[in-house]
Design a binder for these strands. Structure first.
Length: 778
DNA sequence: GTAGGGTTAG
């Protein structure tokens, strides 16, 4: 990657020029300062733990200045290392040799690490040859370098062969094993460690957090306090993270006390972690207060505060802060890109990604997975394939995060086989890879493949189960939903909100009140009945099952409602014939204008227009329709127009309805014509009916689903000869009608029957008995 | 030894 003008290389060119003179005579502070750009100076002073103020500027002596220069070179090497700019690193190495600085031991170690990480064994050996004997510090650095390079066995070899070890040697090796998830080996070295200092305890705690064992981490922290080891700032950052992971906010508050007790309230790292802790505890105010009161802030603080604004629902402000941040790195870029993607603005996410690359930042694994997710949501296959190629080139395609995102991307683009190819190519898969693949199959309607893969998942988690359950829900195989759900409970899987919302959806589509009530009980037992998702799903389930009273009760009891909850209630009321009440509810939203802009969406308008058309409220309907764009800035979509056609057709205004379709700004939905035809059959208007049928035939030609619809329309209009005509045509074209389904609920179990034979496990017996009944009839 | 960003279901 070619660095742009912002990269440190240009600051360095000033050095190269100055360096020749310094070779002969060390520079004095004035010369040093006058040849440094402020950025480089800040970096170098920072590494010397000095603050940049007037006092420190004037007190700088040549030796400090030169030391600062060496430090600067080291920090540059670090930058090159992080960005994998081996070319720049080598250029710098050349200059360091010329100026004799490469013989500085620390510089040499940094060079060594850089080459090790870039897997340049020639250069590594050359430097090692030059430095026949390394001391303890150097060996420790080597261990660290091998660990960074994921070569733990080499690190262990050095550790075992070292003439002496100190506390750093132990902590480094322990951290290395933790990084690779080899917790047992970490524990073993920790127990063998004769220097159990804060650092090694902290390493262990942090290791447990990395490996998802938050509880273990917390236990260790308590043990550490019992042993009388004084935690430091880094310990607290780890423990705070544990607390966030466990969502144990009672302990969070205890931690705040401990932090004050140990005098770390103003520590930079601690404050950085506290911003997120407060945010996760739902206390946006305190999160901001911590940030505002910080004496110094770094790039982590700025990145953390972005989320505070996102949490406030203010993405625009978050972006403004991002644009004006004093310092950015690849994490801050990734954070901003992720927020856009998660807010459904994948285009903006990708634009930002482009800017990031243009700015010379190297996207890391997280960043690529965010970007792949954004591409998946846009179904941007060519771009996705392009990135995949790039990932192979830089050797990142084996990572589980990347792999999962790639599988997801291909499957969301309908390329299940390509997804599978990625899946098969992963030598190490975690449960997410499996889940992505299973979900990819079910997304593309390949439920048998999904099930087969699902059964092979070594360690299923809640998401695995949810994937399978929601797959069956989406493909309307409700009996399978309950089957898998029972299996989940039986094998000890813990359902969460999204499990219930899927199963409730199955209840809703079966209108199975009994099962729904049963689930409601389980949900209350788990204490998640007040969560928005749950409340909404319950409201919907009761409404769809015809128990509008319970639906209302759940809805009114919800502590927090979102636009989907309101939509579910309004839709539910409208569906159950309480159109007037649905509209009253909508007007309630409109009156509380503070809520309106976030709650009123195109979906809610659909429910409202539906209510109008079912109550025959023609004028009201048109008023709402017209207010969509004028008041709320929502462009009506095809479905909204269809509702309006329905409204006109049901009111017998067939000519107006036909005219309405004609002047629509875009191609009407098939359903719009269907609504018109249904109006024609109510009001017996053969004239318009004929024209509409002609249109419907044209559309059916384009889209096989049109035939099904057409046959249904004819059926509901009682035009049976036309129905058989369509069916015959479908048979000729080998189009299969999506089977109708009926079901009964027996002893809390739903038995479904589809048009095709043999779907029920006992269908042979059932048919035999039917035969018997028929026989006895005659 | 650290804090900020990350994959799958809804």
């Amino acid at each position: 990657m070619k660095p742009t003008k912002q990269t440190p290389l240009n600051h360095l060119s000033l050095f190269y020029w100055q360096l020749q003179k310094w070779q002969k005579r060390p520079p004095n502070s004035r010369q040093f300062l006058s040849n440094l750009s402020s950025t480089t100076l800040t970096t170098s002073l920072k590494t010397n733990n000095k603050k940049l103020d007037v006092g420190s500027l004037s007190s700088i002596n040549p030796r400090t200045a030169f030391k600062a220069y060496v430090e600067t070179c080291i920090s540059l090497l670090k930058t090159y290392l992080n960005q994998s700019w081996i070319k720049q690193g080598r250029t710098l190495h050349g200059h360091l040799i010329k100026t004799g600085i490469s013989s500085d031991r620390y510089v040499a170690i940094k060079l060594l690490i850089m080459y090790l990480n870039c897997k340049r064994s020639d250069e590594v050996n050359e430097i090692l040859r030059e430095f026949g004997g390394f001391d303890l510090v150097a060996w420790n650095c080597m261990i660290n370098a091998h660990i960074q390079n994921c070569n733990i066995e080499e690190a262990r070899r050095i550790f075992d062969e070292m003439p002496e070890r100190n506390e750093v040697s132990y902590s480094t090796l322990i951290a290395g094993f933790m990084r690779l998830g080899r917790v047992d080996e970490s524990i073993s070295y920790f127990e063998k460690n004769p220097f159990q200092d804060v650092v090694s305890w902290t390493t262990m705690i942090s290791g447990f957090v990395q490996n998802g064992s938050n509880l273990e981490a917390l236990k260790l922290f308590e043990k550490m306090l019992e042993f009388g080891i004084i935690p430091n700032a880094i310990t607290f950052t780890c423990v705070v993270k544990t607390c966030i992971g466990l969502k144990d906010f009672g302990f969070g508050r205890c931690l705040l006390g401990l932090i004050v007790k140990y005098g770390l309230k103003s520590n930079l790292s601690v404050c950085n972690s506290l911003i997120t802790l407060h945010l996760r505890m739902g206390d946006i105010e305190s999160a901001r207060k911590v940030f505002d009161q910080m004496e110094e802030r770094d790039v982590v603080s700025w990145t953390a505060i972005l989320d505070v604004y996102v949490e406030m629902g203010n993405l625009v402000e978050a972006r403004r802060i991002f644009d004006e941040m004093p310092e950015r790195n690849e994490v801050s870029w990734s954070a901003m890109i992720a927020r856009y993607s998660q807010n459904g603005d994948a285009e903006e996410a990708l634009k930002l990604f482009h800017l990031m690359v243009l700015d010379g930042y190297k996207p890391n694994i997280s960043c690529f997975s965010i970007v792949l997710t954004a591409l998946a949501s846009l179904e941007a296959l060519p771009l996705g394939t392009n990135i995949h190629g790039h990932l192979i080139k830089i050797g990142m395609e084996e990572d589980v995060f990347i792999g999962s995102s790639l599988i997801d991307m291909y499957c969301k683009c309908g390329k299940t086989e390509d997804g599978r190819r990625v899946f098969d190519s992963l030598s190490e898969k975690n449960v997410v890879c499996w889940n992505s693949m299973a979900s990819g199959y079910s997304l593309n309607g390949k439920l048998e493949e999904a099930r087969e893969l699902f059964d092979r998942i070594p360690k299923k988690n809640t998401v695995s189960w949810n994937t399978m359950i929601s797959g069956y829900v989406q493909n309307e195989q409700c009996d399978k939903v309950f089957e898998v759900f029972d299996e989940m409970l039986f094998s000890g899987g813990i359902p969460n909100g999204s499990t219930f919302s899927s199963v409730l959806r199955a209840c809703a589509s079966l209108a199975s009140l009994e099962k729904g009530k049963n689930l409601h009980g389980k949900i209350i037992k788990l204490g998640i009945q007040y969560e928005v998702f749950m409340g909404t799903a319950l409201t919907d389930m009761y409404a769809k099952s015809g128990d509008i009273e319970s639906s209302r009760k759940v809805f009114n009891g919800m502590h927090e409602k979102n636009e989907i909850s309101w939509t579910a209630m309004i839709q539910g009321l409208a569906d159950n014939g309480f159109g007037e009440e649905a509209l009253v509810l909508f007007e309630e939203i409109e009156k509380t204008s503070a809520m309106a802009p976030t709650v009123v969406t195109e979906l809610i308008f659909l429910a409202v227009l539906f209510a109008c058309s079912h109550c025959g409220l023609l004028e009201k309907g048109f008023r709402y329709f017209e207010s969509m764009e004028r008041v709320y800035g929502i462009k009506p979509r095809g479905k909204h127009y269809t509702c309006m056609v329905d409204l006109l057709a049901r009111s017998g205004r067939l000519n107006e309805a036909e005219e309405f379709i004609k002047v629509m700004p875009f191609q009407p939905e098939v359903n719009a014509w269907a609504a018109l035809l249904s109006g024609c059959s109510i009001y017996k208007n053969e004239d318009i009916a004929e024209r509409t049928v002609k249109k419907l035939w044209e559309l059916a030609e384009e889209n096989s689903a049109g035939y099904v619809l057409l046959s249904n329309i004819y059926a509901s209009a009682g035009r049976w000869t036309d129905v058989s005509k369509v069916r015959k045509l479908m048979r000729e074209k080998r189009l299969k009608k999506i089977g109708g389904c009926s079901w009964i609920e027996l002893r809390n179990e739903v038995h479904s029957f589809y048009c095709e034979d043999g779907c029920h496990s006992q269908s042979a017996d059932i048919y035999a008995i039917l035969e018997l009944i028929h026989g006895s009839d005659e």
